[in-house]
Amino acid sequence: MNADNEKMKSGCFYLRSSAFICGVTFLLAGCSSAVSQGHNTALSGVDLVQMTDDMAMKIAGDPQVQAAIAAKGALKVVVLPVENQMRAEVLPQGQAEAFVGRVRTLLARHAPQDFTWIMNRDTFYRLRGKELEGVEPGPSPDAISPDYSLTAVFTSLADEDAKHRSSFYICRYELADLKDRTVLWTESYEVKKIAVKGMLD
């Protein structure tokens, strides 16, 4: 009988110890890094991929774009960074270039014969600054004049209160003829994001 009691006590001790250790371990493991847990309403890498995949596909498949290519040959296009018109959001230079740069990369990869990509002036001068590092920027932008520009304007409606933050984005892409300023192609990507605030937000 005494032996049974001892065994039971010993079992309880191990159980309690294990629960304590598990609890503390769980608590410590729960303290994840400051950048791995949160959720915000800004445009993310997922949006970048979805949006640019969608836009590249639509440009390449657009009948008017195809007609222009058939009439003029490969379109000479300059890519400009995204214009930020979003409410209460910033779009740093790198991101502003990435959102149009990926469209160019996709088109250059999948329809190389349809488009000739001309480096924009800012990128050219930035690269020229690195000539000493062995980067060859190519001919001056003044020597080549593009016929079209690929631009994007991001706008958003955003609001924040004590309980949530929400943003509704409209990201509009345009392929415009630089000579007569007509828009050859335009499309938009729309997404709504809501982040609900928790106890310590």
Partner: peptide, 20 residues
Amino acid sequence: LRAWEVINSTGVNAGGRTLG
């Protein structure tokens, strides 16, 4: 920007940090 991103995020303290 690094700080801004976390400030504008929700649920940063979810889980163990809230409990702690």
